[in-house]
């Protein structure tokens, strides 16, 4: 069976959840081979092997990680040439798209970004994407070279699947041409203590209607064990960090339950939440477009509706 290369997203060997999702999807297309660039192979081994990685290619040279992506794209291109994989899967992050874009040109191969599903169909690979703010679902194929696919987080549930996890250490030559952009500083972001926005089964978001005070939104979210999100208006006003923005230029979320409070429901916001299973809104304007999407809506002031709801939930949970 052909190999499927999966680029591992990790910090010092701590493997991200989206990587385990990629390994799970890769099994549908062939035999997953994890490609681990940078230090931390020992720490990563368990997670990769238990999620289906038959092989783990380890590439650990300082030049690969001191510079931005171009060396990683060179290394992957070499692996693609050596292994003729059925596909290359990457996470849909800034880095995944940069590497994917370069790799596509290097290998004369088609690239599909932000896939939410991949399947083996008629001896090829078929991708599913959600486009135009989630208004259309599109299927597509790569018609030239090796399919290169970036996949959105949360597209599947990671499944354990014990595999050999045979380590192969690969040495690569990084060209001077690939050393154009040097990473001079990396400041890890602090954790909020709440579930990860793109992974949470419930997301509660606040918009301009919060007036800048997210305390009611956060208390309600915490009563449900939910992640907190924000509209761009709230982020642009400096009320909530950009990392929590939901929408076209923020995160795409697709939880079981999405609660929009004080958010009007502009197309760019919908782009990031329209595929949520159940949608609920609290907005004092009954004409707000968000109400066109909801399964349940409350026309009212979030400053009174949310605290009442929070109290009721806390009481129920006893």
């Amino acid at each position: 069976m052909a190999e499927v290369l999966v680029l591992v997203d990790h910090v010092e060997g701590a493997v991200s959840k989206p990587t385990l999702e990629l390994l799970t999807l890769a099994r549908r297309l062939g035999e997953p081979s994890a490609v681990l660039i940078g230090a931390g192979a020992d720490a990563a081994h368990g997670a990769l092997a238990s999620h289906g990685a038959e092989k783990i290619y380890v590439l650990d040279a300082p030049e690969l990680t001191e510079y931005l992506v171009a060396p990683k794209a060179e290394a992957l291109a070499q692996l693609v040439a050596d292994t003729s994989p059925a596909a290359v899967l990457l996470a849909s992050s800034a880095e995944g798209k940069e590497i994917g874009g370069r790799l596509a040109i290097k290998c004369d191969s088609g690239i599909i970004t932000d896939a939410v599903d991949v399947e083996a169909v008629d001896g090829g690979v078929q991708m599913t994407q959600s486009v135009f703010a989630g208004n259309f679902t599109v299927t597509s194929r790569v018609t030239k070279g090796t399919p290169i696919v970036t996949i959105k987080p949360n597209s599947t549930t990671p499944q354990e699947h014990p595999a050999a996890g045979t380590v192969e250490t690969i040495s690569v030559q990084v060209s001077d041409n690939a050393k154009g952009a040097r990473i001079t500083e990396t400041k890890p972001r602090g954790k909020s203590g709440r579930p990860e926005l793109t992974e949470a089964p419930i997301v509660v978001s606040g918009g301009r209607g919060t007036g800048g005070d997210f305390s009611e939104v956060e208390a309600f979210a915490d009563s449900l064990g939910a992640a907190v999100g924000a509209s761009r208006a709230a982020v642009d006003s400096g009320w909530y960090p950009h990392a929590f923005q939901v929408g076209q230029t923020g995160k795409t979320v697709s939880p079981q339950l999405y609660v929009a409070t004080g958010i009007s429901g502009a197309i760019q916001h919908r782009a990031g939440m329209q595929t949520s299973k159940t949608i609920v809104a609290v907005n004092k304007d009954e004409e707000a477009p968000i109400f066109e999407l909801v399964d349940f809506g409350v026309v009212g002031n979030l400053k009174t509706v949310l605290p009442q709801a929070t109290e009721a939930i806390v009481k129920r949970k006893g």
Partner: peptide, 10 residues
């Protein structure tokens, strides 16, 4: 190098 094979409105 890529082709949309089908599209469906949500």
């Amino acid at each position: 190098w890529t082709k949309v094979t089908a599209y469906v409105a949500r």
